[in-house]
């Protein structure tokens, strides 16, 4: 390789990485701005999209704007319930698809794939059409949102858990059986612990999808207000800075969970190697 080629190579190698880092910056800057604005004192100004003055009062009084904390609490309740139901049903379905042969698998795959390939506005409006046709038009609220959230979380749970299952080395299960473990013992001592990280990831994904959903929830919410719906309503008048506090807190909690998960996995790997 001539020196010139070598310089070209070096630039080529590092240019891609540098451009990649720029794209990451594009992804991360808005989050940094949310965090920054959570410390903004907007009381003196009508422009809530500009940093005026530093304050910690938004963090000290996160519930000050009327309805904000009610909306957050509604979102958390729906999120937890939808996560539990979607993760349970989805995990069972993933086992069925990965471990059992049954007829109609291509139909089953279609049923799982289609919700991910449908625009939310279509899913939301068709659910609304169903509820209205079934005479529940007046009872839209907590439970209709819950039903919708389980529906759109299911596909994501199924593919996440299924991916973990199909990446699993079934020699370990064979070994357990060879050592006279019963089928139940094999499942609870070997299979389940190995699949568990996948189930946990699916649950986290479900919760964040549910907590963050606006389009489908808004169509099926009736008078109930979730956190994204609160933000939407507030955006027409100028959002209170506490919304950024919630956004930042969510980010920190989720990041901590993911980092803890990664750290735990690495610790186990080193423990195994030692």
């Amino acid at each position: 390789m001539t020196p010139l080629q070598r310089v070209g190579r070096w630039i080529g190698d590092h240019l891609v990485l540098a451009l990649g880092v720029l794209v990451i910056v594009y992804l991360v800057v808005p989050i940094a701005i949310v965090a920054l604005m959570s410390f903004n004192d907007s009381s003196g100004s009508r422009n809530v999209y500009k940093f005026q003055e530093f304050t910690v009062s938004n963090w000290a009084n996160p519930c000050k704007p009327e309805g904000l904390c009610d909306a957050v609490s509604t979102s958390i309740q729906i999120g937890l319930l939808a996560t539990i139901v979607a993760t349970t049903l989805g995990t069972l379905a993933a086992f069925a698809l990965a471990r059992h042969r049954f007829r109609g698998r291509s139909g089953a795959n279609m049923l799982i794939f289609l919700p991910m390939a449908s625009p939310e506005i279509v899913m939301g409006s068709s659910l609304l059409a169903l509820f209205v046709a079934a005479g529940f038009g007046g009872q839209l609220g907590f439970w209709t949102i819950f039903i919708a959230h389980v529906m759109f979380c299911l596909s994501f749970v199924i593919i996440t858990v299924k991916a973990r299952l199909s990446g699993l080395d079934d020699n370990l299960e064979q070994a357990a059986m060879d050592l006279y473990a019963t089928e139940a013992q094999t499942f609870w001592r070997v299979t389940f612990p190995l699949v568990f990280p996948g189930i946990l990831a699916a649950a986290l994904l479900s919760f964040s999808l549910s907590f963050d959903d606006f389009i489908i929830s808004n169509l099926n919410a009736g008078q109930t207000v979730t956190f994204p719906m609160f933000v939407w309503g507030a955006a027409q008048r100028g959002v209170p800075m506490q919304v950024n506090v919630i956004g930042t807190a969510m980010f920190v909690i989720a990041l901590a969970l993911v980092l803890a998960g990664g750290w735990n996995q690495r610790r186990r790997a080193t423990a195994k190697a030692a």
């Binding site: 990451i24 992804l27 991360v28 808005p30 989050i31 701005i33 949310v34 604005m37 999209y49 500009k50 940093f51 964040s208 907590f211 963050d212 606006f214 956190f227 994204p228 933000v231 939407w232 955006a235 959002v239 919304v243 950024n244 919630i246 956004g247 930042t248 969510m250 980010f251 989720a254 990041l255 993911v258």
Partner: peptide, 19 residues
């Protein structure tokens, strides 16, 4: 960092583009 945007609210992130 690629999935980091998912950790916080879609609407709140979109609003920060106004700024």
């Amino acid at each position: 960092l690629v999935v980091a945007p998912f950790f916080t609210s879609f609407l709140v992130r979109t609003l920060s583009w106004k700024l």
